[in-house]
């Protein structure tokens, strides 16, 4: 099904969902719409290879091979596809023990990720090692709520990122949880945490001023907590301009996104895709030249990789 057929059939089925209007200077030159696809993962945790099912050794899920196939297929059908990750690309196990995060970053690069943020596990090899890996691979995480000025990371990250296609501009920010009681590494006191909600609002406002059609927050806060700790839910309810929060940390397999009313009386969508690359989440939006953004549909791909014959 091509893009036009998809939009038409979905619209006929009455499946349109209207998201808030975000006033901005729109870039459209005609009355058409664009279907924008957001593909996302979180907590990949060094799983370059399929995760073994401990109860059924014949079933393997996730892995770079399955990822690549699905991503390529989706991008081929819709070039307006953004691929992002919400942190913890590193995790416990032999891959991390062997490569200390470098192979994991090279995998993100190989798969064509447009943007990613950091999680606490990405610091496991230490600040200097992380900075070295980022430099060697040429990858830069998006982190909006940390000041790394006095560390080796100072030139290795971006506080925001804008990805552009013809007639479409997507603003991306990254929000990382308070790290200091989550990591045990030298010099951790040199990385300065900045208030997540405040920085998210400041960055989103900036991206709005830059005429971004959609603003996406890659968050490693965790979806929500019973003790009221800072979470995606709290950020969703206390922001003004974020359209989608791509979540991580709590490793939840969302079957459908959560939708919250935000501070500007609009809506912020929160979604999360489990862990280990087992699941790949897809959100399809229709964006038009009248400043409307509609969530057309969501998909969650449970990935399985076939063993070599």
């Amino acid at each position: 099904m091509n893009r036009r057929d998809f939009i038409t059939s979905t619209a006929k089925a009455g499946l349109l969902f209207s998201l808030p209007i975000i006033p901005n200077k729109f870039l459209w030159v005609d009355g058409s719409t664009i279907t924008f696809t957001l593909l996302h993962t979180n907590n990949l945790q060094s799983n370059l290879f399929p995760v073994k099912n401990e109860y059924d050794t014949e079933r393997h899920t996730g892995g770079i091979g399955a990822h690549k196939k699905v991503i390529d297929d989706i991008v081929k059908n819709n070039p307006y596809t953004l691929l992002v990750d919400a942190g913890d690309f590193c995790g416990d196990g032999p891959v991390f023990d062997t490569f200390k995060g470098k192979a994991e970053l090279e995998a993100l690069k190989y798969l064509g990720y447009h943007a990613f943020t950091l999680g606490e596990k990405d610091f496991m090899a230490g600040i200097d090692h992380l900075a070295n890996n980022l430099t060697l691979t040429g990858m830069k995480p998006v982190v909006s709520n940390y000041d790394f000025t006095h560390t080796a990371l100072q030139n290795c990250y971006e506080p925001y990122k804008i990805i552009e296609w013809p007639n479409l501009k997507i603003g991306i920010m990254g929000i990382v949880l308070p790290l200091h009681d989550k990591i045990s590494i030298p010099d951790k006191e040199k990385i300065v945490y900045l208030d997540a909600v405040e920085q998210a609002n400041t960055t989103a406002n900036y991206l709005k001023q830059k005429n971004c059609n959609m603003i996406i927050c890659l968050s490693h806060l965790g979806d929500r907590y019973s003790d009221g700790n800072l979470s995606d839910e709290i950020l969703a309810k206390n922001n003004y301009d974020i359209d989608v929060i791509v979540g991580g940390h709590t490793q939840r397999f969302f079957k459908q996104p959560r939708i919250y009313q935000n501070k500007s009386s609009g809506y912020t969508i929160v979604n999360q895709a489990g862990w280990g690359g087992v699941q790949l989440a897809q959100l399809d939006f229709e964006i038009d030249n009248k400043m409307n953004k509609n969530l057309l549909r969501t998909k969650n791909f449970l990935l399985k990789e076939k063993k070599n014959q």
């Binding site: 499946l15 091979g65 399955a66 057309l296 549909r297 449970l302 990789e305």
Partner: peptide, 17 residues
């Protein structure tokens, strides 16, 4: 308006190219 959420499970095993 309404939005449909679909949960797709990719069953056919995928072999890395």
């Amino acid at each position: 308006s309404t939005v449909q959420f679909q949960y797709h499970s990719i069953s056919s095993s995928i072999q890395a190219d």
